[in-house]
């Protein structure tokens, strides 16, 4: 069940807001304190990638983030509307043997997803012509914490 949904325009300044929100909800959901930095960074990476993609392809379209507390997991889904040309790529085994030799665009996009894959407990990346959807989750206290 989605507990919080946020849409924001593709502006770099809003990425910080999104990651602060995600961290606050993760804490409230009962994600361990030691994992909160990972949540903050992974959500920031997903939102940054989406903002960059929207600024290239569809700057007027909003980016959507869903933060869910379900079955003892804290789940975050970041959805963008920019057509992805990265379909079929294996995101679980990204390597950067020659980061200095890579094109900046490839480097940035690949780095962001590599960081997410390295940080989140569970990640799925769904690229398509209608946009990319990144789902990531971390263990949380069953039922979450009291909202007090």
């Amino acid at each position: 069940m989605a507990t919080v949904e946020l849409t924001f325009s593709a502006l770099p300044a809003h990425v910080r807001t999104a990651r602060l929100l995600a961290t606050a909800i993760a804490r409230r959901t009962g994600v361990e304190e030691s994992l909160l930095d990972e949540v903050r960074l992974a959500v920031g990476e997903a939102c940054s990638r989406a903002v960059e993609a929207h600024r290239l392809h569809c700057p007027g379209e909003p980016i959507r983030i869903e933060l869910c507390d379900d079955s003892g997991r804290f789940e975050v889904i970041v959805t963008d509307s920019a057509p992805s040309d990265e379909q079929g790529r294996d995101y679980t085994s990204l390597r950067f043997d020659d980061p200095l030799g890579q094109l900046p665009g490839t480097l940035m996009s690949g780095f962001g997803i590599a960081v997410i894959v390295g940080l989140a407990d569970d990640v799925e990346v769904f690229p398509s012509q209608k946009g990319m959807r990144i789902r990531m989750s971390w263990p949380a206290a069953a039922g979450g914490l009291s909202p007090v």
Binding site: R40, E45, P99, P104, L107, F111
Partner: peptide, 19 residues
């Protein structure tokens, strides 16, 4: 306090320039 892949890209870009 916080560094993401955009920051990494800037550092890599800087390294390429000085090299």
């Amino acid at each position: 306090d916080f560094l993401d892949s955009t920051g990494l890209g800037v550092l890599v870009g800087g390294l390429k320039r000085v090299r």
